[in-house]
Design a binder for these strands. Structure first.
Lengths: 392, 392
DNA sequence: TAAAACTTCATAAAATTTTTAAAAAGTTTT
DNA sequence: AAAACTTTTTAAAAATTTTATGAAGTTTTA
């Protein structure tokens, strides 16, 4: 049956994309098919030039296996990473390399009826400029903020109010499969697939940005919740601080921990005469403001360090709640805020020590992501290839 | 190959145990095997008397299917439900009926070196008294409090300090497969398998007892966390009340919400002269004390109702945190505390309205379990039959 | 240091399982 | 009451896995 065979082929391609190098036996285990069948499919793929016999692998005591890899130009993935103001578009090949410049365009999402059609056009432009045939594109993956229902392909916060779903709209313009998901979930997926600790089955990824997002890998797969809205870490009612959150409630984690809060605190502190190398901060320019604070902290500026420590401790309190509920193996701090690096470790760990039952805290490894600014693009690509086997 | 076939047979038995009545086509879908194979296995099982052709099912427009069911005495499951003081043991047949009296024995777990051997003996006694052949016992399932590592079959809180695991020890005495898990997880499993809302894939079950436990069904399966310690809802740091918890920290949810807290508050209130039909409460007799409070509340006693409402609201605050993180479809209040019934609904729902983002709260159905005192025994039986297909 | 023992990979033949197609047994529509 | 449509059951063909065997290494041991 032709459609079944095509699914197996896609599974092989998917596994080779993520693992790079695999022997026939390893592939057979991954796709849960017998070795003879896997080898038959592999030799077909090799004769088509999609897969190559890379070299002989190392042996752990026995015949050396032929190791296979996928050719870089066999397929391409279009990755899109959006935030409320800017959208990045890039095309990745099967070697995880971006074959185009990462295209960064200004695309404000709030109250923007044109946003979806703009997005479709820009994606289509990038594809056409690349000269890659649509048949060679495995799909388009999009990471976006807001309440995203990945199943239905819609976003309840942005790009809404159209008749057709986001995925359908873009699919019609480009002729490619389209997948969307929430930015924090996709950062978690990127960490699981490409990160330094990709083998763990229970990982929480904190997306520290203008809000505080949470992506969860539970039982080895991305957990999205019943409507795709899981991970609303920003708005758990954790403080009794009477600070009004933009969600309308008070005491949300976000009121004490987002990068915007850090910036506001910095500005207020400076106004009150705190001594610091920081100057000229403004809420109108959050990106550069936050970068300045990080730079100052890394140079040892006491005020900047104090700011980050305070916020780190609050994040840690939130993480302590997560650890009690989910008993993860690993917690990764990622997102834009992770650029501050090691500064976060001590205060967060300190909060975990104070607020966690020791047995639970002991089992958790805290780590600051090194993936940097590309995490969302990597996650979007993972989303496409994760789903690649499903469609034929 | 004989062991593969035996696994399929076991899968069929498992599905028939949980679903009671299934046609060949339905079974084929459940065990993910083709219809011809499933029917072949079924006719074998029928000729052995394990399965019976029950009747012709209703048709939805087509030939009426033969509906199969499992014979009640084909197999039995030993269910054990423990709390810190008492242990219940019962034997269930394939029709979910207890074929023995539920045996309740006093077995204090704290600092009790003999507890494990006592437990083994008592289980063995019940099995022998029943006259059921060990070969007819699918397994022994045990629900217990504490930090349970179901994989390793050990409990880090109770029954510890032995060379062998809990499961191994009991298996040696009885000659049966043994499975253990944390009480709250098994209550969740019982709700998923036998409860009124068993079709939901994302359900949280609050086990309201002397502590506040949490069992989670995520993506359709029980989520235990990386070490089996997930669901430590009792000890999330949610209050700034300076009340010392027995875990050594302050502000734990448990300091405001467990049934013991209710009892203590009631006693304190009465001492302060609150008017109520309650009398003669004592912390030495928590069971009867709490029963009295429930009874009073159900009769409309203002003080008792106020107590439960207050605690209900605090639980609701905790549940609000869970909803933000996990976006469940359903939250079920279960465990001993669920006996209070509808009284919980209003205050918990009220807390959800106040502390949840509307979009999330809208998606959640709150429900008070009707399973009652047998939930743990049912969960323990589910655990055994859930694992039944794995071993041959 | 070579031979023996042990692993793992690759392939061919046998056994199992699924798929496809057709027949049987109903239900619903006309 | 016949025609059209559904669903279950059965039988034969096609696909897939298992088992067995040989090939190609590595590690152990004498």
């Amino acid at each position: 049956m032709t459609t079944k065979k095509s699914r197996y082929r896609r599974q092989i391609i998917k596994e080779l994309f993520f693992s790079r190098l695999l022997s026939g036996t390893e592939l057979s285990a991954k796709i849960d098919k017998s070795i003879p069948l896997t080898n038959k499919l592999l030799s077909e793929l090799v004769s088509e030039g999609v897969v190559v016999e890379d070299h002989l692998g190392v042996s752990s005591g026995g015949r050396r296996p032929i190791v296979y890899s996928i050719t870089s130009d066999a397929l391409y993935v279009v990755s899109v990473a959006m935030d409320q103001l800017f959208t990045k578009i890039a095309i990745m090949d099967m070697s995880h390399r971006f074959v185009t410049q990462v295209d960064k365009i200004s695309l404000p999402l709030a109250n923007n009826e044109q946003a979806l059609s703009r997005l479709s056009e820009e994606i289509q432009k990038v594809i056409q400029a690349s000269g890659i045939a649509p048949s060679k594109i495995a799909g388009i993956g999009i990471a976006m903020p807001g309440f995203v229902d990945a199943q239905k392909g819609i976003n309840h916060t942005f790009l809404k109010g159209q008749e057709k779903s986001v995925t359908e709209t873009i699919a019609e313009v480009t002729g490619c499969q389209v997948f969307i998901d929430n930015d924090s979930s996709l950062i978690a997926l990127a960490e699981q697939r490409f990160g330094a600790h990709k083998y763990h089955d229970n990982t929480l990824v904190i997306n520290l940005g203008w809000g505080v997002g949470l992506g969860m890998i539970l039982n080895g797969r991305l957990f999205r919740g019943d409507n795709g809205f899981a991970g609303e870490f920003s708005h758990i009612p954790l403080f009794t601080n009477n600070k009004l959150c933009e969600c309308g409630k008070t005491g949300c984690l976000e009121t004490e921990t987002s990068l915007l809060v850090i910036l506001e605190k910095a500005i207020k502190g400076l106004e009150e005469g705190r001594v610091s190398m920081l100057e000229n901060l403004s809420v109108d320019n959050p990106e550069t403001g936050f970068e300045a604070i990080i730079k100052a902290a890394n140079k040892g500026d006491a005020f900047a360090t104090e700011l980050l420590s305070e916020v780190g401790y609050s994040i840690g309190r939130g993480v302590a709640v997560l650890i009690h509920i989910l008993n993860p193996k690993m917690v990764i701090i990622s997102g834009r805020g992770a650029n501050a690096g090691k500064v976060w470790e001590a205060p967060i760990q300190q909060a975990l020590n104070v607020h966690c039952i020791p047995r639970l805290a002991q089992n958790v490894k805290l780590s600051i992501s090194a993936m940097g600014a590309n995490a969302e693009l990597m996650g979007a690509a993972s989303l496409v290839m994760d789903n690649y086997e499903v469609y034929n």
